[in-house]
């Protein structure tokens, strides 16, 4: 039998570890499903108490959602909303992370930026929406700008905090080994930044989809918000609830298909630091040292 080359061995080992991480994440999904089942049970209880007109049954809503998903037009509506939310979210990530990193390295900038952020977060999204409608008219631009403004502060603050609270000892260590400022940003700053950034991104993504649907509904710009407005006008409660379910399902899909795997990849080392034990593939026993 020929020996496996070391490079292939390392590749197989890395692939195995990655597969085990994905497997663990999927297995962890059972807990999430249990939570969703609990919500469905409460929903069913509400339906039985208030009646089908006020609150349609979860099963009926699911059937309506599946019927909606069977038509290509619905997929176009969903894509429209997700593209707007995604574009606004990506814009907020680019702006927020770069400005947050700059502010994190410059305490004076952070002190200047904090009151501005308080003002931005203090203005309700609906007010930004009205302003955006006045400036840009109903359409993509209005939704995108509202989403961007809603998602930006949380991402900015997380990036700035990540950089601001970085381990100065590691910075000094890297400097002693000859790291330039760019090296330190790439090797240390960005890694520190990721720790608070991922929870902020999850929050911002949820906010982006919610604000996009709200902006579409109020600015009559189509998408899931537009479909919700039509259901409301037709007093079609099952369809309205089905669109809400579709919006939430889209958000969950985005979060668990994109953000969580990225987070798991960048935080593998945290598994090793869990206080309840090392969750890694078993290593061969170490031979005794002299």
């Amino acid at each position: 039998m020929t020996a496996t080359p070391p490079a292939l061995n390392a590749l197989l080992r890395a692939a195995g570890l990655r597969l085990s991480r994905i497997g663990r994440s999927l297995w962890g999904g059972w807990a999430g499903l249990a939570g969703l089942a609990l919500i469905a049970a409460l929903w069913q209880a509400g339906h039985e108490h208030y009646g089908a007109f006020i609150l349609p049954a979860p099963l009926e809503t699911a059937r309506t959602a599946l019927r909606l998903l069977g038509t290509p037009a619905s997929w176009q509506i969903i894509a429209e909303t997700l593209l707007r939310a995604g574009a606004g979210f990506c814009g907020a990530v680019c702006l927020g992370v770069s400005a947050g990193i700059a502010a994190g390295y410059s305490p004076a900038t952070l002190r200047l930026a904090r009151p501005v952020l308080t003002v931005i977060t203090g203005v309700p999204p609906i007010a930004w929406l009205v302003l955006a409608m006045l400036w840009l008219g109903p359409g993509d631009g209005t939704v995108l700008l509202t989403v961007l403004i809603a998602a930006l502060p949380v991402i900015f603050v997380a990036a700035a905090e990540g950089i601001g609270t970085r381990d100065r000892g590691l910075d000094a260590m890297a400097t002693a080994f000859g790291a330039t400022a760019l090296h330190r940003l790439w090797l240390l700053g960005l890694r520190h930044c990721l720790i608070p950034l991922f929870p902020a991104l999850t929050l911002a993504l949820g906010g982006a989809v919610k604000v996009a649907v709200m902006a579409e509904l109020l600015s009559n710009a189509g998408g899931i918000g537009g479909a919700l407005a039509l259901s409301r006008a037709a007093l079609d409660v099952p369809a309205a609830l089905a669109w809400v379910v579709i919006a939430v399902a889209s958000l969950i899909t985005l979060e668990y298909a994109v953000l969580r795997p990225l987070q798991a990849e960048t935080e593998v080392w945290r598994d090793a630091a869990r206080p309840w034990g090392v969750r890694r593939a078993a290593l061969p026993p170490a031979p005794s040292r002299p």
Binding site: G169, M173, A174, F177, L187, L188, R191, T266, W269
Partner: peptide, 23 residues
């Protein structure tokens, strides 16, 4: 240093390789 100051997110090999990467 007095405390090892290792990068917590990097394996021992990647920590040792840091000066090589920097150079």
């Amino acid at each position: 240093f007095q405390d090892p100051r290792l990068l917590p997110w990097a394996t021992a090999a990647d920590n040792i390789a840091l000066p090589l990467r920097l150079s």
